[in-house]
Simulated assay, not measured.
Amino acid sequence: MAPQVREVMTLGPVTVAPDTPVREVARVMRDRNVGAVLVMDGGRLRGLVTDRDLTVRILADDGDAAERPVAEACSPDVVCVAPEDDMDRAVQLMRGKALRRLPVVDDGQPVGIVTLSDVAAERDPTCVLARIGGDE
């Protein structure tokens, strides 16, 4: 039987408000050593933004990118799992939708995140991705 998401997820996802300037989001990512943050609006998960999103959706555009709100960069259609879901479901979602990260939501609130490194470590602790660890 596959373990539950709660046994594999990384706890304490980093969150920001949708109006947070992307410059500040980039600093948060750097300081917290994460590659993704969750965008929360009024206690509701609005999106997920990655370091790649900041590059492709914001920095690649013309103009003053640093002060644009993170809401312009986030992926609005966030696929989530629950802590009690089994890891097979999480892996199936990640494969089927080509996702590297899945927020873990309990009673409407984010409680963790499952990353490719988490999956790799659970499936094969000796693989390179598992050894790198952390948030890709």
Rank of each mutant, 00 (worst) to 15 (best):
M1L: 10
D88A: 14
R101A: 03
L54Y: 00
L54F: 02
V34I: 11
D106R: 15
M9L: 13
P103D: 05
A17I: 01
L11C: 09
N33F: 01
A121K: 15
S75K: 06
I58K: 08
V39K: 02
V14R: 04
S117P: 02
E67D: 13
N33G: 03
L129H: 13
V79Q: 06
I58L: 13
G63D: 13
L93R: 11
T15N: 02
R52P: 10
V79G: 05
D62Q: 12
D19H: 09
D19L: 07
G47Q: 03
R46L: 12
N33D: 10
C74K: 00
P3G: 04
D31N: 10
T20E: 04
D31S: 07
Q92C: 10
R52T: 12
V37S: 00
R32V: 07
D135L: 01
I132H: 13
R131G: 15
R44G: 06
V104E: 04
V5F: 09
M29Q: 02
G96E: 12
T20I: 06
V5N: 12
V39M: 01
A66E: 14
V91M: 14
R52Q: 09
G63Q: 08
E67Y: 08
S117K: 05
D31F: 05
V14D: 01
V49H: 00
V56M: 11
V81I: 09
T15W: 04
V22I: 11
A98L: 10
V81Y: 02
L45V: 10
P83K: 08
V16Q: 00
I58Y: 03
P3N: 06
D107M: 11
V56K: 06
D88Q: 12
V81S: 04
R131L: 12
D31A: 08
R44T: 13
L99S: 09
Q92L: 12
V105P: 02
T126D: 15
V39H: 02
T126A: 14
L48R: 01
G35N: 03
A130R: 07
A36Q: 07
I132A: 14
G35Y: 04
L45P: 03
M40C: 08
V8Y: 06
P18K: 07
V81W: 02
M87L: 15
A90Y: 00
G112W: 00
V128Q: 12
Q109P: 03
D77F: 05
R100Y: 10
I113K: 03
P125A: 15
R95I: 12
A66M: 09
A26Y: 02
D31H: 06
L102R: 02
P83C: 09
L45Y: 03
V56L: 12
G134R: 12
R30K: 06
D62K: 10
E67V: 11
A66C: 04
R6D: 08
S117R: 15
L48Y: 02
R52G: 09
S117A: 15
I58M: 15
G134V: 04
V78R: 01
R101V: 03
S117F: 01
D61R: 14
C80T: 15
L93H: 05
M29W: 04
